[in-house]
Write a protein that binds this DNA or RNA. Structure first.
Length: 261
DNA sequence: ATGGTAGGTCTCCTA
């Protein structure tokens, strides 16, 4: 069995219902994981997605955060976890009939100042990653895929300027360390980078840039990981960069990967 | 060094 999975920080699923449908129609992923739905679950516009053959699993809250998994394959809701006890809707998991578990994450952005003494949100981000690490250590994931907006660009070629971003939240050494520990704890493999080892693969460009594509000051904040037992079945990774230029775009582009299992 | 844009909600918070 082969299935294609996509992950996309949608920055309001209600406002962007048309481009979610466009993605489903034009790209036809079997599973689409969304982050920053910014909607209570009962206000997610699921009817249009259902008409295209997609069921959904979601966790939501008013105004902030929110994650959803749209799927045209049968999928079972296998729960969520409130990492770091923030009380935010940032994680949900589903299981496909082939036994593969899909974790959909929206890791806290962490505010502007990369110092937990001066900025509580940065501490929460680090704590969130530490809690993920401890959970994966305790309960070793198998046959699992982890996707989402992890809000960290770990490698030098994951940002437009490594030097200029070393002290910018998303690319600081302490965040990169925390991410590496989380990966190691779950024996996760970065499928996107296993597939495409070199060069920029940005998935986010600020709304504040005048000409985002020409300036191309992007970061790779969105990730597709798989546990090492199934990571080799992942292939055909890509970023749908054009989606950043669609009508009323999200500031993130979707990432794709296909798994043969 | 600074400010720039976007979304949700209800006046400013978050990204």
């Amino acid at each position: 069995m082969s299935f294609t999975l996509a992950t996309w920080n949608i920055n309001s699923v209600r406002l962007r219902e048309p481009i979610v449908c466009k993605l489903l129609q034009e790209q036809g992923p079997d599973v689409l994981c969304l982050q920053e739905c910014k909607s209570p679950v009962d206000k997610i516009p699921t009817e249009a997605f259902a008409d295209l053959g997609y069921t959904f699993i979601a966790r939501g809250q008013k105004g902030y955060n929110g994650v959803a998994i749209l799927s045209r394959l049968p999928i079972e809701d296998v729960g969520d976890k409130d990492f770091a006890g923030l009380g935010h809707a940032r994680h949900v998991a589903g299981r496909l009939e082939n036994g593969v578990t899909i974790h959909n994450f929206y890791v806290p952005a962490g505010g502007d100042i990369p110092d937990r003494d001066k900025n509580e949100k940065f501490g929460q981000k680090l704590d969130y990653l530490t809690d993920m690490r401890d959970w994966f250590r305790e309960d070793k994931p198998e046959k699992a895929i982890l996707v989402g907006d992890l809000n960290i660009a770990p490698r030098e070629d994951d940002v437009w300027s490594h030097k200029k971003l070393l002290k910018v939240v998303s690319h600081t050494p302490i965040e990169v360390e925390h991410m590496a520990e989380t990966m190691e704890a779950g024996d996760w493999v970065d499928v996107t980078r296993a597939d495409i080892p070199e060069g920029p693969l940005y998935s986010w460009w600020s709304y504040r840039a005048r000409d985002w594509s020409t300036a191309d000051k992007g970061r790779r904040l969105d990730h597709v990981w798989a546990t090492s037992d199934i990571a080799k079945s992942g292939h055909s990774s890509r970023v749908l960069r054009e989606a950043r230029g669609w009508e009323k775009p999200s500031d993130h582009a979707p990432i794709f990967a296909t798994f043969d299992l």
